[in-house]
């Protein structure tokens, strides 16, 4: 049981960390600005650092890996006054984005989790899903419906 709940907690954290990494910095900033009380102070464990992550592909899409090229990523780690540690790895070069993501990550492990879920994560998730759906709807409209005009044997 303990293992199951730990696995669930990891899965849940993977979910929000991914969402925070993909979120547009402005959208995330707008959501956390509305928080009351605001985001807490924290001490740095690792100040925001921008670097490259080598993205890998696979031969034929399923085979052996190869190096495709890098993407920019900014990471940081911080500790709240209650000792909770928050981590962030976010796409791009925005240090404020990484700091906010790490603060949300830390808060999601404590008492304010439900509040952050509804005020920050759920809206970001909904916006992301809506954006994906919009694109998929446009793609669907470009799907070819073949029809036979005339057959040669008549």
């Amino acid at each position: 049981m303990a293992q199951d709940s730990e696995a669930e907690a990891t899965e849940s954290r993977r979910g929000w960390m991914g969402l925070l990494a993909r979120a547009a910095p402005e959208a995330l900033a707008a959501r956390v600005e509305a928080l009351d009380p605001p985001l807490p102070e924290a001490e740095w464990l690792r100040v925001p650092q921008t670097g490259g992550v080598m993205v890998r592909g696979q031969m034929g899409g399923t085979g052996a890996p190869f190096n495709l090229g890098e993407m920019t990523v900014t990471r940081c780690a911080l500790r709240l006054t209650d000792g909770t540690v928050g981590h962030a790895y976010v796409q791009g070069r925005d240090r404020a984005h990484a700091r906010t993501a790490a603060l949300v990550d830390a808060l999601m492990q404590g008492e304010r989790a439900a509040e952050l879920r509804s005020a920050v994560l759920d809206p970001l998730d909904a916006a992301e899903t809506a954006a994906h759906r919009d694109r998929a709807a446009k793609a669907a409209a470009t799907r070819v419906d073949f029809f036979t005009m005339a057959r040669g044997e008549d």
């Binding site: 670097g51 490259g52 992550v53 993205v55 890998r56 592909g57 899409g61 990523v73």
Partner: peptide, 13 residues
Amino acid sequence: LPRIGASRPVDTG
């Protein structure tokens, strides 16, 4: 840029 790491192979499927 410092190299932070390498990704898992992306799943194009």
